[in-house]
Design a binder for these strands. Structure first.
Length: 509
RNA sequence: CGCGGGAUAGAGCAGCCCGGUAGCUCGUCAGGCUCAUAACCUGAAGGUCGUUGGUUCAAAUCCUUCUCCCGCAACCA
């Protein structure tokens, strides 16, 4: 089956942070998970390069527009490349390909008569370059940031009405309980839909905003940035208003959008209605996640010094443990916390659990079995039970699990549990005692075999989170590093040469 | 009364839908083990489940008051 996974395209008027890293890692994890199940995946991420704030920042630093965009967008792409994200396409909204689709889409719905022009009157603060609501102003009627009264201005703009589809969307949510995951966000969207929806203003006069896509039907305006940005999900896979959309349709049929909670409304209200106007079904799933806060639940900020920089983390422990931590720690019900200390805690757990397990068994057999996988001929019931438990757990998740935060939470937790179980088994069986007694030879080999084979199962299961660690484990077990999601026990072949390498998770201070 | 979510050992979380001895990881302490990466195994201490009132034989769980935190409530994204 063909699957399509997207991250939001990130607004380049800011540096990439751990939240961007998480969403993009989550997409990569889900892509690998789906691939292991035999699905074809097309995974996109990218940057949103238009809008008023980018325009202002660009002017402030005095760079040529495209140089500015390339520099800022490059910051994101560099991070994702450093994190070895396996994206298939990197979206640039300033690309001609994307702009063409935005214009095509706008033209299409304009000709369908779904866009209307009307005037808007509002209080506009020139300092903020934004319209203000009366409630945003201080007691003197001034903008609190600029201590200046906003001007009452009237503007002509183009609007895309939403209200006509509100009931349709409510019905859609109620009849598709898995559309928005986790469910609490579906509840919130229903709250947004409880009141009539205002028309969405989809244009900005060029006198205010020029960094954007020209409206195809009026050169004096550019497209509102969200209308532009959301189109990336269909421009990336070649939608067009006329002609053959067979390839598009096949990819779009199983589309999952990943997003953080702050952009729920755009994705769950505006976007489905935009798609409806274009004659396109809503995306199959929206996976919404919370924010990363600093330790103690305090918002990360430079002044508090609790900002977690992805590069710093990668320098400290590499990318795999960060991926694992983020997927394991993101909460289903709320926001999640991250700090260097919490990351170290997670790293240590991986080292002591999986890293130590690998090292203790491999070093043992290097000493007294020439590092070769022993025979599985004398496995006893408890050995088989351990392997089957581990294999069945992973088999179930890989077979029936659906991409979601629940899934990455559960799978990462089960991996740690499996590591614990194998460590406990190893300690209980005490193979170092068996090794000293020649009459216990068969039992010794059975215990070692069981431990090695369990480790193999863990390595395969952990691949979406820690691809590089997974491959290192498999190679140390004398396997090639091809990953197949087949969770059958007793696969290792007797006599296979294992290799004691460097620690998977070296000690960090 | 704007909408949704959160508040549970020193830290990070689960449990809440469907009420019945409060659980997991880390940390701390004690014991064990010695194959292994300041590791592993076993056990212990540590919580009036944010606050108020209520329903009930029984409340972390259901209803209610208030407080604090995160989003949304933008023609910022």
């Amino acid at each position: 089956m063909k699957k399509y996974i997207t991250t939001p395209i990130y607004y380049i008027n800011g540096a990439p942070h751990v939240g961007h890293a998480f969403t993009t890692i989550l997409g990569d994890v889900l892509k690998k998970f789906e691939q292991m199940r035999g699905n074809d995946v097309f995974y996109t991420t990218g940057t949103d390069e238009h809008g008023q704030k980018n325009q202002s920042s660009c002017q402030e630093c005095g760079m040529a527009v495209q140089d500015f965009i390339d520099m800022r967008s490059g910051n994101f792409q560099k991070l994702f490349d450093a994190m070895k994200i396996d994206y298939d396409f990197f979206v640039h909204t300033s690309s001609q390909q994307h702009k063409n689709v935005v214009k095509d889409a706008l033209d299409y719905i304009y000709k369908k008569g779904l866009i209307k022009k009307k005037s808007y009157e509002g209080l506009y603060c020139e300092g903020c370059e934004q319209f203000k609501k009366p409630s945003d102003l201080d007691e003197h009627g001034n903008c609190p940031d600029h201590q200046k009264a906003p001007k009452l201005i009237t503007e002509e703009n183009y609007f895309f009405p939403l209200e006509q589809d509100r009931q349709w969307l409510i019905d859609y949510i109620n009849t598709h309980p898995d559309w928005i995951k986790p469910k609490r966000f579906a509840k919130e969207v229903l709250g947004m839909l409880a009141e009539p929806l205002d028309d969405l203003c989809i244009s900005r006069p060029k006198s205010r905003v020029w960094l954007g896509v020209d409206l195809p039907f009026d050169d004096d305006f550019v497209t509102y940035i969200w209308f532009d940005a959301l189109i990336n999900y269909i421009s990336s896979i070649g939608w067009k208003s006329q002609g053959d959309n067979a390839a598009f349709n096949e990819t779009w049929a199983h589309c999952t959008h990943l997003l953080a909670k702050d952009i729920l409304k755009t994705h769950a209200v505006y976007w489905p209605i935009m798609l409806k106007a274009l004659g396109i079904e809503p995306p199959e799933h929206l996976i919404v996640h919370g924010y990363w806060l600093g330790e103690g639940g305090i918002k990360m900020s430079k002044s508090l010094g609790n900002v977690v920089d992805p590069y710093e983390v990668m320098d400290l422990m590499g990318i795999d443990p960060l991926r694992f931590y983020l997927c394991n720690a993101m909460s289903l019900s709320g926001d999640a916390q991250i700090s260097i200390d919490l990351l170290k805690q997670g790293y240590k757990q991986l080292a002591n659990n999986i890293g130590n397990l690998q090292m203790r068994v491999l070093k043992m057999i290097a000493k007294n079995l020439d590092g070769k996988v022993p025979s599985a001929a004398h496995l006893e019931a408890e050995d088989k039970a351990l392997l089957e438990n581990v294999a069945n757990t992973f088999e179930r998740i890989y077979k029936y699990g659906e991409p979601s935060l629940e899934l990455v939470n559960e799978l990462s937790a089960e991996i740690l549990k499996a590591g614990d179980a194998v460590n406990a088994y190893f300690a209980t069986q005490a193979p170092w005692v068996l090794a000293k007694d020649e009459s216990k030879r068969e039992r010794y080999e059975a215990v070692i075999y069981t431990t090695l084979d369990a480790l193999r199962l863990i390595a395969v299961a952990v691949y979406p989170f820690m691809p590089s660690i997974a491959k290192k484990i498999l190679v140390s077990l004398g396997q090639n590093d091809e990953i197949k999601a087949e969770f059958k026990p007793v696969v290792l072949k007797e006599g296979t040469q294992t290799i004691v390498g460097d620690p998977l998770f070296p000690f960090i201070a």
